[in-house]
Design a protein around this nucleic acid. Structure first.
Lengths: 180, 180
DNA sequence: TGCATTTCTTTCACGAGTAAAACACCTGTT
DNA sequence: AACAGGTGTTTTACTCGTGAAAGAAATGCA
């Protein structure tokens, strides 16, 4: 029927799912300040959409995003990490890290070495195969992400990155200190 | 990727976890454009932090966020919804909705009514208790979210909401159409 | 030294989500 | 009327993450 040629011309404001939801809430509770929803709702929804989208290149390599995050932490720090450090670095629980490491070790992407001084701790490093996998995926991943974000012009991207950085920096500083 | 001008008043740039990660990547792979990470990484991290934070008021009411999303969908639309509609409205799978509805029904927050014409479909509505629960939680929730977001000044909040709305609106339009 | 305490990691039991199959029911066609 | 195929929902089997407890080893202190 209609040829969808001229893309993203007037697709600007007020037509995302979150603003529709906010409109519904305002109709039911006109007294409430729905401002926060327009930020938090959109961050959550964007995160969900982007994760689903960016999982595609990883899935081709047989990795989930949490698995890639582990390998990536080892690659980008450039040295061995203990399970505890990996948990902190990837913001996940120790138990989850243990499970993922088990699988990644079995797949030969990661190697484990015991500490000589303290026999409780382990040190993990990428195998050659692991490093090659990460280095192979990362450019694809970034290319894909660049393509997805291209729906925003470079100026908008810069502003968005700046604002998110400001928000995140302050949240990481203050969260846990807020009580309501 | 030029440095974003404009904003940044006080405790501004370069001090969130994402920028530290990006610095590490650039040291290892100086040739790659890490721009997308500064947006996608931050969106993901903000989503994780905010969700953890905003779960607190809900948890006090004995609800998880996905459960509250279901109740909220029923409340804000103002009419009965079928399981399928609820799944679409909350962006979750039908199976997940079935499970949550089972629990919420057992807790007396939601009621089920069979369709008279089509005996496959069910219609769900809030009970009085369910509506009162939602209406009691929502103001708390919004107050909490307002407090959390107050780390950004109102101008920044407005800009952020606008940029996210633009991104989300276009992602929802284009995602699925992007192949790399 | 011996014992309590702390730290690092793994194990366990469980809850929650998913995809795919199963069910139950409707609808259009012949 | 009968049935093939489609649709709405639930069930099943499985994966993955979580918090709490267990396990194992170091450390501090009497």
């Amino acid at each position: 029927m209609t040829a969808p040629s001229g893309r993203q011309a007037g697709a600007s404001r007020g037509d995302d799912t979150v603003s529709a939801v906010v409109r519904q809430w305002r109709a039911v509770h006109p007294d409430l300040d729905t401002g926060p929803m327009e930020i938090i709702g959109r961050i959550n929804r964007c995160a969900a959409l982007l994760q689903q989208a960016e999982d595609a290149p990883l899935r081709r390599a047989g990795l989930s995003r949490p698995e890639f995050d582990l390998l990536g932490a080892l690659r980008r720090t450039g040295h061995e990490l203990t399970p505890g450090e990996l948990a902190r670095e990837t913001f996940s629980s120790g138990a989850a890290v243990t499970k993922r490491l088990k699988q990644l070790t079995e797949r030969g992407l990661v190697e484990r070495r015991g500490d000589t001084r303290d026999r409780r701790v382990a040190h993990l490093r990428l195998t050659d195969a692991g490093r090659e996998l990460v280095d192979g995926i990362l450019p694809e991943q970034l290319t894909y992400e660049t393509a997805v974000l291209a729906v925003l012009d470079p100026k908008g991207q810069g502003e968005l990155a700046g604002l998110l950085g400001e928000l995140l920096g302050r949240l990481e500083g203050t969260l846990g200190a807020i009580r309501v």
